[in-house]
């Protein structure tokens, strides 16, 4: 069976770079939240991570350093593969409400409770055709991009709070803490599903492998991303 190129080397690299940065920033960032009203990973976690890094100030410095590396990596990717970045953004924000919402509803049902409830509700279990990304991938990518913008903007404000933020603008720092926490939390909620779908779900295994090899089998592409494949082969007006 033929294999179809799906990801560039720079795409694969930025994906895993982003994943590594997210993991490191999450581990260090959650350790920087230390308040009994919050403590998302438990009361003992902040103290344990801080000990590991040589104290709270050192952990904060590492977290900020990682954030700078993360931002620099993404900027470098955009510089190296600008067309790829534009393609990615265009694809994830191109939503066809009727087709994509129905796909989302049906896919969520099929993945959790199965086809029977769909049939009972008068729906067929067939999924509407999807393009380069399915709606689940689009939703998570949208959350990652928008969340990433919020995370970076608020992170920059917090990092610069003791350098350039005047007294009259301190409210920005307070709100940055809150919005940083919100954005990370919501993207993390989506990340759990993303990791499951990509690395554990058997249906998506070829997609996971393609994030290393760059290629997917043709029948996988036809089944999961028909509009994209059709666009490539000129069969119909799919995503190109």
């Amino acid at each position: 069976m033929r294999r179809i190129k799906r990801h560039d080397r720079s795409d694969i690299l930025i994906h895993w770079f982003n994943a590594a940065c997210w993991l490191a920033l999450l581990v260090t960032g959650v350790g920087l939240v230390a308040n009994p009203q919050l403590n998302p990973a438990g009361d003992a976690y902040p103290g344990a991570v801080r000990s590991l890094f040589g104290g709270g100030p050192a952990l904060l410095a590492v977290h900020i350093g990682l954030g700078i590396v993360w931002m620099a990596g993404i900027v470098l990717y955009v510089a190296v593969n600008f067309r790829g970045a534009v393609f990615f953004l265009k694809e994830i924000f191109s939503v066809s409400p009727a087709r994509d919402v129905m796909w989302m509803v049906k896919k969520m049902a099929l993945m959790t409770v199965g086809a029977k409830p769909l049939v009972k509700a008068g729906l067929t279990p067939d999924l509407p055709d999807q393009g380069y990304y399915n709606m689940g991938q689009k939703a998570f990518a949208q959350a990652s991009v928008l969340g990433g913008v919020v995370i970076v903007a608020t992170g920059v404000v917090m990092s610069l709070s003791d350098m350039v933020i005047p007294a009259s603008m301190v409210w920005m720092v307070g709100w940055s803490v809150t919005l940083h926490y919100l954005a990370v939390g919501l993207v993390f909620a989506g990340l759990l599903v993303h990791v499951y779908m990509a690395a554990i779900s058997r249906d998506e295994r070829p997609g996971f492998v393609s994030m290393f090899t760059g290629h997917v089998p043709e029948d996988y592409a036809r089944h999961h991303h028909k509009l994209w494949l059709d666009g490539l082969t000129g069969d119909s007006g799919g995503h190109k």
């Binding site: 179809i4 190129k5 593969n81 790829g84 970045a85 393609f87 249906d203 043709e218 082969t233």
Partner: peptide, 25 residues
Amino acid sequence: HDGHGHAPGDQTPGSGDADRPDNRS
């Protein structure tokens, strides 16, 4: 749809990789 048993060098249908912009992620 795992494509097991297929040659790693298989190419894009139609006119191959050239059909797909190199920038797709």
